[in-house]
Design a protein around this nucleic acid. Structure first.
Length: 685
DNA sequence: GTATTAGTGTTTTTT
DNA sequence: ACACTAATAC
């Protein structure tokens, strides 16, 4: 295809408004893009257009997206149009952009190149250690809150003791060459402000800057963008104030509302045609969101046919709710991957998980317990982190006794004190002060072995995954898992380890791999998996599904009681709006009266009323299923004699059931004893 | 001194 | 499902 035809093809795939936005090349442009209005398409095509028409070189383009998944998808789609040149475009999240810039200029702020990124768990571990040595006990969660407040707004709490914990926290981070998520942004800004020549380098490089999901930009992110616009004003942002749902992490949707004020010659384009959902679904979304006051006027419309009416599911308990959802899924005849179940809080996934598992419906949970949060994965990653950065105390603390090697809390404490005294890391203390602490032969030997393994791995040449394999062998991790877990669980963990090793292929350095892991988001691991998807509404942002269930539509759950008391109902309403606009064809809104871990009787969410779905006698929207089911005490649907299917072993017959274990005679593999919870058996009718 | 175990708590949303 | 604690075992 010739060059001009390709451009013609791109432009012909857009509607008038989208094309108008795309062809606006110079100056500040705000695209107000309602849910499902094709904003990603506009953003992608615009960047492809800039390159294809030689308006900009790839390396002169910066695009900031919300997740790494979105970044990768965008890069791929641009590649499809302009080819390999797409590789030199900077497409990043704010955090990964910060990390990249900081690594390119690490020395200026006094870090080493191999700084690590501490996650929530590391932060907590560190804070606990600090309090332990000071003899104080504060709530770790609120300490993290104070740290974030300080980093974002410079606000220090009154209490001197809390101040000193925070100071020590930051001191430790610096000394140990670590940054937390906020540091990635704050330090980048600091770099720009303290070293104008560094800012100039980037501000001159990036001639066209794009920001996706602009409504969730925080003040510090906004400042970063403003700095980069030092020499020009080619800023193209896409967003929708109705979908601003991250205020708790600093997002401020007034930034998008103030765009024209901040950039006086701004051009604004509104995209209101929706290509995702049916008219019924959009009408419902519009009815609810119009109750918000802080927004521009906007009404989504579509050419889609009317479609199926959204339904309300009303049940007594969460068990029945789950059972009803299972029935709807099974009756539909659709593939499981068509369904998504969305909820306000992670805790609501429990009852569903059980029901799905019992009925042999494949599912996967996004977030909550993520792959990268499993014990075995975190253990091995901690080893890699320590190998990469010997100053990573939190990594060392995690794995010093995993597997147990005869080094206990007393020994560790002794090295902590030496590290503190000498201003070095714990690992360095072990290496340099072995004699002072370990006078017992056994402890000394154990420490020497440990250090030797870490040093050997660090000095090793060759592939990452081969190094990891050798590491696992030398620390005896497989044996450790097998001796401490029951067979089903151990099998599971070993599979995860294998998956982890496989995920290392394709990375050329430990640095690159660790960074991609620490900045990974929920959505990043979503793609390859089939089955029903379960996730929070926050995690579902930017995604779409043929059939969506939104559960937990009860007062104090959704809207959440903390948002009610903090007078943050509008954000909850936006969250509801995001949830329902994920649905392409069918939408089910579910509430019930009683939930596990909740003693009180639950009232239906106000959003159901705003959607016009309550208080109608003989309501055509409502499916009433007040079925008080028999308690399934066995907790599984299997009977002796049933024919079942197992993912690996194939078809077999249930021979006996004993509590949570079943014996199954498989055609190929013979008799196996399986733990029901893990076996994921499917009934074959 | 270190390892293991049983019991407890965990639940707003996340890069 | 996990981390943390306190108690006991080695």
């Amino acid at each position: 295809m010739g060059k001009q035809e390709k451009i013609f093809e791109i432009l012909s795939k857009l509607n008038d408004r989208q094309r108008e936005a795309l062809l606006q090349i110079e100056g500040p442009i705000l695209v107000i893009a309602g849910a499902g209005s094709g904003k990603t398409r506009v953003l992608t095509y615009r960047i492809a257009y800039l390159i294809h028409q030689s308006i900009a070189k790839p390396e002169e383009i910066l695009a900031v997206t919300f997740t790494n998944k979105a970044a990768n998808e965008m890069k791929q789609r641009i590649k499809d149009i302009v080819g390999r040149r797409a590789n030199s475009i900077w497409i990043h999240t704010f955090h990964s952009m910060g990390a990249r810039i900081l690594r390119e200029n690490y020395d200026l702020l006094g870090y080493s190149k191999n700084f690590v990124i501490y996650d929530r768990e590391d932060q907590k571990r560190l804070l606990k250690n600090i309090m332990k040595s000071a003899g104080w006990k504060f709530d770790v969660g609120s300490l993290i809150y104070h740290i974030e407040q300080f980093k974002k707004y410079g606000v220090m709490p009154q209490d001197g003791r809390i101040q000193s914990v925070i100071e020590e926290y930051m001191d430790h981070m610096k000394k140990n060459n670590a940054m937390d998520f906020d540091d990635l942004l704050a330090n980048t800004l600091k770099l720009f402000e303290s070293y104008p020549q560094v800012l100039d380098k980037y501000a001159k490089k990036f001639k066209y800057i794009h920001v996706d999901e602009y409504q969730d930009t925080s003040p510090i992110q906004y400042k970063l963008i403003r700095r980069l616009l030092k020499y020009h004003d080619n800023i193209f942002v896409v967003g929708d104030e109705d979908q601003s749902i991250y205020s708790f992490r600093g997002a401020d949707f007034r930034i998008i509302l103030n765009f024209e004020r901040d950039f006086p010659n701004a051009k604004v384009v509104k995209l209101e045609q929706n290509y995702r959902s049916t008219k019924e679904i959009l009408d419902l979304a519009n009815r609810v969101i119009k109750n918000n006051r802080s927004r521009r006027h906007k009404v989504l419309w579509t050419n889609n046919t009317k479609g199926k009416k959204p339904a309300v599911l009303s049940h007594y308990s969460d068990r029945e709710e789950a059972a009803a959802i299972v029935r709807i899924i099974e009756k539909s005849g659709r593939p499981y991957s068509d369904f998504a179940i969305l909820y306000r809080v992670n805790a609501l996934s429990r009852a569903l998980e059980e029901a799905l598992m019992r009925n042999g419906i494949p599912y996967n949970i996004v977030g909550g317990f993520r792959f990268y949060e499993r014990k075995e994965v975190k253990d091995l990653l901690a080893y890699l982190r320590l190998i990469y950065n010997p100053r990573d105390d939190m990594a060392l603390e995690r794995i010093i006794s995993v597997p147990p090697r005869g080094i206990g809390s007393r020994t560790l404490q002794a090295f902590r004190e030496i590290a503190q005294r000498e201003g070095i890391s714990i690992y360095e203390a072990i290496k340099g002060h072995l004699d002072e602490v370990a006078r017992g032969r056994k402890t000394r030997q154990a420490l020497e072995n440990f250090v030797e393994i870490i040093e050997d791995m660090r000095g090793r040449e060759g592939n990452l995954h081969e190094m990891a394999q050798e590491l696992i062998d030398r620390i005896g991790y497989i044996e450790y898992i097998q001796s401490t877990e029951d067979p089903g669980q151990a099998q599971n963990r070993l599979e995860n380890i294998q998956e982890l090793i496989n995920s290392m292929r394709g990375y050329s350095s430990l640095e690159e791999y660790l960074e991609s892991i620490s900045l990974a988001s929920d959505q990043d691991e979503l793609d390859t998996r089939s089955g029903v998807k379960l996730m929070t509404i926050h995690s579902a942002k930017g995604l779409e599904f043929p059939v969506v269930f939104v559960i937990g539509l009860e007062e104090n759950i959704f809207p959440h009681f903390l948002s009610i008391s903090e007078n943050n109902i509008e954000e909850e309403r936006r969250l509801f709006y995001v949830a329902v606009t994920r649905a392409q064809e069918e939408l089910y809104l579910s509430h019930c009266e009683r939930r596990t871990f909740r003693s009180e009787m639950l009232q239906p969410s106000r959003f159901l009323e705003e959607a016009g779905l309550l208080d109608e006698e003989e309501d055509s929207y409502t499916i009433r299923e007040y079925t008080y089911e028999e308690e399934d005490t066995g907790d599984h649907p299997f009977r002796i004699g049933d024919i079942v299917e197992h993912r690996k072993f194939g078809i077999g017959r249930v021979m006996s059931i004993d509590g949570e274990r079943v014996k199954v005679l498989f055609q190929r593999e013979g008799l196996k004893t399986l733990v029901l919870k893990y076996a994921n058996l499917k009934k074959v009718s």
